[in-house]
Computed example of a mutant assay.
Amino acid sequence: MESLNRVEISRSALIHNFQVCRQLAGDAAILPLVKADGYGHGMIDCARIFASQGAAAFGVAEAIEGVRLREAGITQPILVLVGVVPQTLPAIVDARLTPVVTDATILPALSRLAGASGSELGLHLKVDAGMGRQGTLPADFRDLVRAVLATPHLRLDGVMAHFPLADDRQSDNSAEVLRTFQQTTAMLADFNCGKCCLHLANSGGLFYVAGARLDMVRPGIALYGYYPDGAAGTATASPPRLRPAMRYVTRIIQVRRVPKGSGLGYCHLFTTARPSTLAVLPVGYANGYLRNLTGRAEVLIGGRRAPVVGRISMNLALVDVTDLPEPQVGDEVVLLGRQGQGEIGADEIAGWMETISYEVLCLFGQLNARVLVD
């Protein structure tokens, strides 16, 4: 049996988006971010697809994600961006993951475990070049590099930072962050530490910040078909344009005809102003279709838009199909994606939810049955 709610992930769209990023990156290597289960698209499937297209490395949040990628046969370097703490170090060493280190406190434990395994462990350092969230401050960077180089069984393979405002093309912040990062990492020339990979650009940095490509780029949302500045980016994008990779569909489970003046759902937030035909959908906030879509969302049935009416509940939603031609039980309903000439994108849904496309994709992709298509 399969769920009536189904998330479809387009292999061809993922490949297309990788190639768009590849073109923009020039000579820089590409590290796809596949954390958060590939932004809801399926971490392992996405990593395998991106690996086939030439991905140089991968980025995950926690060590357990990296372990799962290794178990799935991914051989490229895997950077652990979050949660490099004593409890995760054995898994990091055993699975040959690359920890992103933010201060020197973790170095002795890393060294002991790497030495016990008879290996040298490569790591990347994270600089807080303006993000203000995580990393070593520029003033402390020299001491951190010195500590890494003085610790046996450890090797400095890279240095990274992160843009806080790369999706704002009008801001001067990204240029300042880039300048701070380059000035900070310039001191690596004072150490005999060999080639060190410098990387800073997320999707926004790749698309919008001149000079940010450096040695490697870390696209995330762009690989899944959306621009980091949302609808504004989509409206102004030059060819080749990104292609959304996720489509979220359900089925009509009942068609009801109710009289004028009928209150619908919890709290009767919506009352029919005319005799109405309603389609009942087996989808709700348990499936990521949040309550705050109530009174805002629309869906596609037969390629035409229809409004969601009444309070969205845990597993049910109502759609007013009075103006549509004879919808039937079992008909496909598109919550996200294209149907016929109609399309509803994650940026539009994000506007209804008062959030960003990233959250929409994670919610839909992680809370529903998912299948890779084409």
Rank of each mutant, 00 (worst) to 15 (best):
P77G: 13
I78Q: 02
A91L: 01
T75R: 15
P90T: 01
A61K: 02
E71K: 15
G83C: 00
T88L: 09
P86M: 03
R96F: 05
R70T: 00
A91P: 11
I78F: 12
L81M: 11
R96A: 12
R68G: 04
L81V: 04
V85W: 07
P86Q: 01
I64V: 10
T98K: 15
A61I: 01
A63M: 06
I74A: 01
I74Q: 14
E71N: 13
I74N: 14
Q76I: 01
E71P: 11
Q76T: 00
G83V: 01
E65C: 04
V84W: 11
E71H: 01
P77R: 08
L79Y: 02
A63L: 02
G73R: 05
I92R: 06
L69W: 11
A95N: 00
V67W: 14
P77S: 12
V85F: 04
E71R: 07
G66R: 00
V85A: 08
I64G: 08
V80M: 06
L97F: 12
A61Y: 07
T75Q: 12
A72I: 00
E65S: 08
I92M: 13
P90H: 10
T88E: 02
A72H: 05
R68C: 06
E62S: 05
V67R: 04
R96M: 13
A61G: 10
A63Q: 02
E65P: 10
D94H: 15
P86D: 07
P86H: 10
V85D: 04
V85Q: 13
P90D: 02
V85S: 03
P90V: 01
V82L: 14
V84L: 05
A61F: 00
Q87H: 09
A91N: 07
A91F: 05
G73S: 08
A95M: 02
T75Y: 07
T75F: 14
Q87F: 02
A91S: 13
I78M: 07
R68E: 14
L81T: 08
R68T: 06
Q87D: 14
I92V: 06
V67E: 09
V85K: 03
I92N: 12
V84S: 02
G73D: 15
V67Q: 13
E65T: 07
A61H: 09
R96D: 15
R70S: 14
V80Q: 00
G83K: 06
G73W: 15
I64N: 06
V60M: 04
T88C: 06
R70Q: 11
L89E: 09
A63T: 01
D94G: 05
L97C: 05
P90F: 08
Q76S: 15
E62T: 05
G73T: 12
I74G: 10
R96P: 04
I78T: 03
